[in-house]
Each structure stands twice: as C-alpha cells, then as structure tokens.
C-alpha cells in the first residue's frame, strides 16, 4: 500500500543502530538464561566440592581444549568476515564464514564423541552407572549434560544464523553499506564462544 506521508522516524526505515541494540538486549537475556544455571552450579559445587572434583576426572581435558581452540578460532574468522564485508570483499567474507561454520561442525562432532563416550559408560541420567553415583556426582553430570547441551543447541542455532547470513551475502542484500545482520550473527557467535569459555574451566579444569 502506497502512502503519501512517511515520518522521518519511521519504524520501517533500515536502522542499523536499532538492530544492533536489539541484538545486544537479546544477548543479555541469553546471559541470564545461562546465569540461572551458573547459580545452580555454584550452589551445588559449594555443597559437594569433593563429588564435583571426582566427577570432573571423567571428562577428557584434551577434547575440551581442542574445542576451546576451535571455537576461539571461529570467533576470529567471523570477526574477520565482518571487516571483509565492510571493506567490500564479499567473496573473502563468504570464505571466512564457511570456515566459521566448519569450525562449528568440528566442535559438534567432537562434542558428539565426548557425549557418546559418557553415555557408553552409563553416565546419562537414569542409566545404571549414573544411578550408582553419589548425589553430588549425579548433579555434576546432570549439569554437564544440561549446560553443554544447551550450549550445543546455541551452536546449532548460531550455525543456521550464519548460513542464512551467507545466503544474503551471496544475494547481495548484505553488502558494504548494509551489514548489520552479519554483525549481529557475529555478536551471537561471540556469545556462544564466551559461554563456552566459562563452561570449559568450570567443568574440565577446576581442581
């Protein structure tokens, strides 16, 4: 519908700043979503320090470390791809985003093998070995699956987000002058990375 008069501050204008602000606000909610879990972790770790320590020896620090490196690298590639688009090099940007998605896939594959090994040992909630554990260890493994699972879900969502963005770069609707959606996908990806940076020491490293 054509209309005769458009307000200068119309909500239908392209507004990169609004889009960025909206993304940041959304990221706050994500932080708080995980924040609730961090509180639960903190409370139960302080109540069961020994059980959490014993349980943490079951994790494979090497796999966790590789995943940390993979995610950090992917954060770098997506940051570079934003700069590439801003400098007008869409092709390079697409290549860098492809690397980011590949890193996400690598992360998920490693995670799959990690989880698979735990489940093979009967550590999934409700399995025989799990039931024989002490309450504190049960909580540890529950939180491990819940928190890394929720994080993994975010990795998948982030991947889809990046693939959508790649499509738009190909079509040219994300370009040198208009690239806030790409930047938002980058912000989201950094958040996924950031949460992992807390999950990794909490579950794998603290002794």
């Amino acid at each position: 519908m054509e209309h005769s008069f458009v307000l200068p501050n119309s909500g239908h204008n392209y507004d990169a700043k609004a889009s960025k602000l909206g993304m940041w606000l959304f990221l706050y909610t994500e932080l708080l979503l995980f924040g609730g879990l961090f509180i639960v972790y903190m409370v139960y770790r302080s109540l069961n320090p020994d059980a959490f320590l014993i349980a943490s020896f079951n994790l494979n620090v090497w796999m966790g470390t590789i995943n940390t490196v993979v995610l950090l690298t992917s954060s770098m590639t997506i940051a570079m791809s934003i700069t590439a688009v801003q400098l007008g090099n869409s092709k390079l940007s697409l290549q860098l985003l492809l690397l980011t998605v590949l890193a996400a896939v690598v992360f998920l594959v490693i995670k799959y093998f990690e989880w698979g090994a735990k489940i093979e040992h009967g550590l999934w909630p409700g399995m025989d070995h799990f039931i024989s554990l002490s309450h504190g260890e049960q909580l540890y493994f529950f939180l491990y699956f819940f928190m890394t699972g929720l994080h993994g879900l975010h990795v998948i969502v982030g991947m889809i987000f990046i693939i959508v963005v790649m499509n738009k770069i190909k079509k040219g609707s994300i370009n040198k002058d208009k690239n806030q959606l790409l930047e938002n996908s980058g912000l989201y990806w950094h958040l996924v990375d950031l949460i992992w940076i807390y999950l990794f020491p909490l579950f794998y490293l603290i002794h």
Partner: peptide, 19 residues
C-alpha cells in the same frame, strides 16, 4: 530468562529424577 531456565530444570527433574 531466570524463570525460564528454572522451569526447564523442573521439567528435567521430573523426567530424569535428578535431585
């Protein structure tokens, strides 16, 4: 968001029997 995650924990506790 805090209530969101808390309510999910209720569901998990009901389904998996975690204390």
């Amino acid at each position: 968001p805090i209530i969101g995650i808390t309510l999910l924990m209720i569901v998990a506790e009901r389904m998996l029997g975690i204390g």
